[in-house]
């Protein structure tokens, strides 16, 4: 079996938001919608303060609450662990938006581009009218993952079939791959480090692991 997950090393993330920009460019999300973003947490009191950065997006859960509540079966969990949306089936009821504890989903009802009415070049190429008035979210760059099945490349190792955010990360904080493959980079990272998953107590089984210390 294959189960694609992401490992994010919070010790390495510098909050540069390059992953956010890369995602926006790769997926042409409308203004105000960021499938991937980086939370900026400043805690403590001077002089004992800390600043931490936490990249978040769809967690591609083992038990996705969005899939359970979806009345149309537009949201499905694939055998490889990716949670996908069929834009042609979704009715835009927003029940999945309410069900997601990671604020990963959004619905936009109007066509909007970054600079007014006309799309910039990347938007021209990647704008998808099917995404208007339906639920959308991070896909783990599903088209790239599907390309791997045709080319024989390995997601997480070969950039062509790896999510844009992972490719773009300047500090090497993000890794992607098959957790069921003991030799994958994510499997090695998870074995060598202490990790947690966001809101694990909710029983969603998120597919994103946050590294916070060495094992």
């Amino acid at each position: 079996m294959t189960r694609y997950v992401m490992a994010i090393d919070l010790r390495r993330c510098v909050g540069c938001q390059t992953c956010t920009a890369a995602c926006k460019n790769a997926n042409a999300t409308p203004p105000g919608v960021q499938w991937r973003r980086v939370l900026d947490l400043e805690t403590g009191e001077f002089p004992d303060v800390r600043r931490s950065f936490v990249p978040v997006a769809c967690m591609h859960c083992d038990e996705p609450p969005c899939e359970e509540v979806c009345p149309t079966k537009a949201t499905t969990k694939r055998p490889d662990g990716l949670v996908a949306i069929d834009y042609d089936t979704c009715i835009g009821c927003a029940n999945c938006v309410m069900a997601c504890p990671y604020e990963a989903r959004s619905i936009v009802h109007e066509v909007k581009f970054a600079y007014g009415d006309k799309p910039i070049k990347s938007e021209e190429v990647r704008f998808d009218p099917a995404r208007i008035s339906v639920s959308m979210k991070c896909t783990f760059c599903i088209d790239r993952i599907d390309l791997a099945a045709k080319t024989g490349q390995v997601p997480g190792r070969d950039p062509d079939v790896t999510p844009a955010c992972v490719n773009s990360c300047i500090s090497g904080a993000m890794a992607f791959g098959d957790i069921d493959d003991p030799n994958s980079k994510v499997s090695r990272l998870l074995a060598e480090n202490k990790t947690f998953r966001m809101h694990e107590e909710l029983g969603t089984g998120p597919g994103v692991y946050y590294i916070w210390d060495k094992a």
Binding site: F196, M198, W212
Partner: peptide
């Protein structure tokens, strides 16, 4: 969002 540990 919440995290159980701030990173080292």
């Amino acid at each position: 969002f919440a995290i159980p540990h701030l990173p080292v």
